[in-house]
Amino acid sequence: MSFFKGFNQELKLILSLRVGAFLCLLGWAWVHFYWEAPYAILVWNETVFSWVERGGGDWEKFVGTGSNDGLLQQVVRQLFWVFLIAAAASFAARKCSIWKLIALLMGSLFLIILFYARYLESQQQLPILIEHGGQALMPIILVLALNFGPRCPLTQHVAILAVMLTFAGHGAYALGLWPTPANYFAMTKLILGFDFEASVVFLKFAGVMDFLICVGFLFTKLRRISAGYAFCWGLLTALARPLAGMSFDLHYWGADQFIHEAMLRAPHFMVPLYLLVLWHPVSEHES
């Protein structure tokens, strides 16, 4: 915790949440600005088509003619601003700054929409929704901390829920309860050099640990260890993306493709860090 020396305990707690929310929202802003966010599945279907027609709208104006962009593409492109403003609000927001808090809540709302689209894209695999829960809740936790204080039980409860969602979702995939994503194996192979059999064993172990730390939050004696493990594992798995994918052979070393993958996963380690600081025994002079 040497990094935090000089900050008082309250500031440390708020700072960890601000950093988590900022990195996450900025990562998603980058996805919207530079790459492609997966909204198509929500809007390119017969139900939306019938809504547009019933509302007197023109389908081609809505989705484009093929030679130009429709309303849909134009709107999706502008969503970048929602995430960028929310990211800025992560550091600028104070208890009394209502619009900045609303910007943060809007960030959460759009993350939820985004993750719902991913859930549909994955043919409705529940772990997709669950594992992204931590990210979706990150701005909300910050708003709660700013409004009610970082030590408020509600803030704490939602933070615990966020960690549990992230790790339960990851655990369900790592254990193979749902098909394990291919990049779990790929990252294990590239970073640790494990062959397939060793990767299977390693991922199963990691999956069991993911579930165990969720249970660990139930026990006072284990919750700090759980939070500590969650911080380390969350940080390592976030960094694994750029570590496995970046290369000197690529334009910008592949930074434009992989850095945001680590950033948007910041809640996976910053929320556990918040809990770790929260449950850190406070000496008198610190308090």
Binding site: I130, I160, L177, V215
Partner: peptide, 27 residues
């Protein structure tokens, strides 16, 4: 911290229960 414990238990039941039910439905 009693409330926190009950909240955690409830969260765990909901998450794990949801996963188990969802996996059954997926099949």
């Amino acid at each position: 911290m009693k409330g926190s414990k009950w909240f955690s238990i409830l969260s765990l039941i909901l998450i794990f229960g949801g996963l188990a039910l969802s996996q059954q439905n997926d099949q």
